[in-house]
Amino acid sequence: MPRSASTNQELREKSRERILAAALEVFAEKGYEAASITDVTARAGVSRGLLAYYFTSKQAIAAELLDRWLDGITAILTIQGPPDERLAGIIDGALMAASATLPIQRLAISLMMLPTTHPTFAKVEAEKSHRITEVEDTIRTIFEARGAQDPAIEEMLLRATLEGITVKLTIYPETFPVEEIRRRLYQTYDLPEPKEPLPVPSPPVDRLRAKP
């Protein structure tokens, strides 16, 4: 019995998602530059031809993963409430995302930094420019409502701080004290102390050291 169009579409989506998941695993393990299309097809359990049906190159796979990463950042646009609650939500959301999605964070950071792949990151960022501008303006509006003298600088400083935290967390996931850093950020912005800790691993404050 022939499959319906909806069944075929569902199977195609599952194959595409399997390829993306496999690519993310391989990129995280080997690094983007060292990983090959053969590595991805072997991990996904698909033929090279099927992968080529969805993605023209390794760069195209990375671009799709980056696209989703940027979509995750724009999720802060949905946070509602008074300015302090929205700012706390942005901080918590960024820390949660960094803790829960380390492989994609590592990929994004590596693609941003490497001269050979920075153009891929820049291209995806340009395609998402409108949404990123919305994120920037949302954060600036929050700081403006809180009485900041220069909301644009405050927005840049917050994002740079959170991105720096993400970098450290990807390098030192076993020793980075997420909860204590979170509470220090709350103090920096005169936010009420959080009532509950974030549901992510958070070792006590000691020293940042990578585990072999």
Results as ranks from 00 to 15, higher is better:
165 I>M: 05
160 A>S: 15
141 T>G: 07
167 V>Q: 06
129 S>A: 15
178 V>N: 00
177 P>G: 08
169 L>G: 09
169 L>W: 08
150 D>F: 04
166 T>F: 05
123 K>R: 14
168 K>S: 08
169 L>F: 13
188 T>L: 12
134 E>P: 10
161 T>Y: 06
160 A>W: 13
179 E>I: 01
156 M>P: 08
135 V>F: 01
147 G>M: 05
148 A>G: 04
190 D>C: 13
134 E>C: 13
145 A>M: 07
130 H>Q: 15
177 P>E: 01
151 P>V: 04
171 I>Q: 11
144 E>N: 03
157 L>S: 00
186 Y>N: 00
181 I>K: 09
164 G>Q: 03
181 I>F: 05
129 S>P: 04
144 E>I: 01
186 Y>M: 09
177 P>N: 05
146 R>M: 15
144 E>F: 02
126 A>Y: 15
124 V>N: 06
183 R>V: 10
126 A>L: 13
130 H>M: 13
162 L>Q: 08
151 P>F: 06
186 Y>T: 09
145 A>E: 13
146 R>P: 01
188 T>S: 06
133 T>D: 12
175 T>I: 14
156 M>D: 04
182 R>T: 02
187 Q>M: 10
175 T>S: 10
184 R>Q: 08
134 E>F: 08
128 K>W: 14
189 Y>L: 11
165 I>H: 08
168 K>M: 09
138 T>A: 11
134 E>W: 11
182 R>S: 03
159 R>F: 05
164 G>Y: 10
134 E>R: 14
158 L>R: 03
180 E>V: 10
141 T>S: 06
180 E>D: 14
181 I>Q: 10
128 K>I: 01
132 I>S: 03
147 G>D: 04
188 T>H: 04
136 E>L: 07
136 E>Q: 13
138 T>C: 11
156 M>V: 05
155 E>H: 11
164 G>K: 08
135 V>C: 02
163 E>I: 12
183 R>I: 10
152 A>W: 01
154 E>A: 08
124 V>C: 10
146 R>N: 13
135 V>P: 06
166 T>L: 05
173 P>C: 12
149 Q>L: 12
163 E>D: 15
186 Y>G: 07
175 T>L: 04
138 T>F: 07
168 K>V: 01
135 V>R: 01
134 E>A: 15
137 D>I: 00
154 E>Y: 01
181 I>P: 09
145 A>Y: 09
170 T>S: 10
182 R>L: 03
159 R>W: 08
185 L>D: 05
138 T>Y: 11
145 A>K: 11
135 V>H: 01
156 M>W: 12
173 P>G: 02
182 R>M: 11
144 E>M: 04
147 G>F: 07
162 L>K: 03
167 V>T: 10
124 V>R: 01
186 Y>A: 09
166 T>V: 07
159 R>M: 03
189 Y>K: 00
141 T>R: 05
132 I>R: 11
185 L>M: 06
159 R>C: 03
162 L>M: 08
189 Y>E: 02
169 L>M: 12
148 A>I: 07
189 Y>C: 06
170 T>V: 01
170 T>G: 05
131 R>C: 12
136 E>C: 10
162 L>F: 02
132 I>D: 07
148 A>Y: 02
139 I>T: 00
141 T>N: 07
182 R>W: 11
149 Q>F: 02
139 I>D: 06
163 E>S: 15
130 H>W: 10
167 V>N: 05
133 T>Q: 14
152 A>E: 04
183 R>K: 14
177 P>F: 05
180 E>A: 13
126 A>S: 15
158 L>V: 06
127 E>F: 01
183 R>N: 12
